[in-house]
Amino acid sequence: MVSAYSALLSSFEEVRQVLCDHGITLDVKVIRKLAYRYAERGRAAQQAGQIPLNDEDSLQGRRVFISTDGGRTRLREKKRGPKTQKGRTRYHGKWREPKLLIIYVVDAEGKQEKSFSPFIDGCFNGPDGLFRLLKAYLESLCVDQADQVLFVADGAHWIWNRVPGLVRKLGLNPDNVHELLDFYHAVEHLGKVAGLRKKWSAKERKSWVTKHRGLLLKGEAATVVQAVQAICRGRNSKAIKTEREYFVRNEHRLSFPAIKALNLPIGSGAIESSIRRVVNLRLKGPCTFWYKENAAKMIMLRSYYKAGRWNQLKLMANSHISQLAA
């Protein structure tokens, strides 16, 4: 109960207050320690492959959506030098990027299946750490038996450079795997390209973006890439190179009509929402600093709670207790 409240509420102090209302008096330090130990046991079971699954979690013959992205939170990192006058250790409060994943199933109409609660999780171990975590979940779910597998993300190099290797390690049929750039990120970058034309009026920029947005939906990605290159030709600023390379590099991931024809999503709103609910509303805030290991534990607690898989985390934590007792 303490861990569930810690995942649900916005601070450990709120947890203490709610527990007091239920007649349970616990110090904030005790609450924090209980929640972190609960997360440790759950993570140990997950790393051992002991994820309790039911019949609804089978991916056999289903259409799977996978996405990853990064958020932002401030970590408390020790600073060299003498302590403060009060004897406290000095620290840096630098922004770091926790990375999250989401796995869910869509039905024949392209809508998220309610019978399959999504898997959400994350870590601070960098891109390789996140993809190891993603691989562990997909192997447990037997993703190789899925009918279609769709990877959707923004244009980040750290994501797309690792997807082909993940597909090979999982033994997936390449014909059933699709890579897609998030449509709304692509449109956002069209706006940035139009903004490079300083002599255009706001109306001309909007017209250009609308036109090429429509071309993307019609499957004319090559035409859009050529138009972007035409705007960027002969200009060598860093912003121009970035936008040109964005579309050239991801041209084969702009097959929006083909994906829509399969009734699969063309946007990564699910992972964007997860970043907000899991990270931003709990770990990100003014004057909020986390130790890295504690932030990672809170991400696991909150991910399972927001995904509707708290009972699974409970079984994982309890199974690890039983193994330690044995």
Rank of each mutant, 00 (worst) to 15 (best):
Y184D: 08
L254D: 11
H178C: 09
P164T: 09
D175M: 06
F247V: 10
V228F: 05
I240K: 01
E243G: 10
R162S: 08
K238A: 13
L166T: 07
K169M: 11
P164W: 07
G165Q: 14
R168P: 00
N250D: 11
L166A: 11
H178S: 15
G214D: 07
F183E: 02
E179T: 11
K211Y: 14
W160D: 04
I159T: 13
R197W: 01
E179G: 15
A239T: 03
A194K: 04
G171Y: 05
R249C: 05
V177C: 10
Q229T: 10
G195D: 07
A153Y: 01
K199Q: 03
W200G: 04
V225E: 06
R168S: 12
L196R: 13
H189T: 01
D175R: 14
K198N: 13
E243L: 14
T242A: 12
K238N: 06
H252F: 02
E188H: 02
P174K: 09
R233N: 13
E243K: 09
T210Y: 01
T242P: 00
S201V: 04
A221G: 08
L180Y: 05
Y184F: 14
K211F: 13
G165I: 04
E243D: 08
K206N: 13
G191E: 01
R162H: 05
I231S: 03
K211V: 06
R253S: 10
G171A: 04
R249E: 11
N236V: 07
D175F: 04
V248L: 10
I240E: 09
H178P: 02
L181T: 11
A227W: 06
V152W: 05
V193Q: 02
S201F: 01
E188S: 04
K203H: 01
N250K: 06
V152T: 12
V152F: 05
V248P: 02
K241P: 00
P174W: 03
V224G: 05
Y184H: 13
K241E: 14
F247Q: 06
N161D: 15
W200E: 07
A202Y: 12
E251G: 01
K192I: 00
V209C: 12
R205C: 07
E204H: 10
K238F: 09
Y184G: 00
L254W: 08
E220C: 08
R205V: 01
H212Y: 15
G171D: 03
V225A: 07
V177F: 10
H178F: 15
S237G: 15
R213M: 07
K206S: 15
V228W: 03
K211P: 03
G234D: 11
K238W: 12
G214A: 12
W158H: 11
H178V: 13
L196D: 01
K211I: 06
V248F: 00
V225Y: 07
S201N: 05
G165E: 15
D175P: 00
R168E: 15
T223W: 04
V248Q: 12
Y184E: 05
R213K: 14
H185C: 02
F183Q: 03
K198L: 13
R244P: 04
L180I: 14
K238L: 02
R197S: 06
V187T: 12
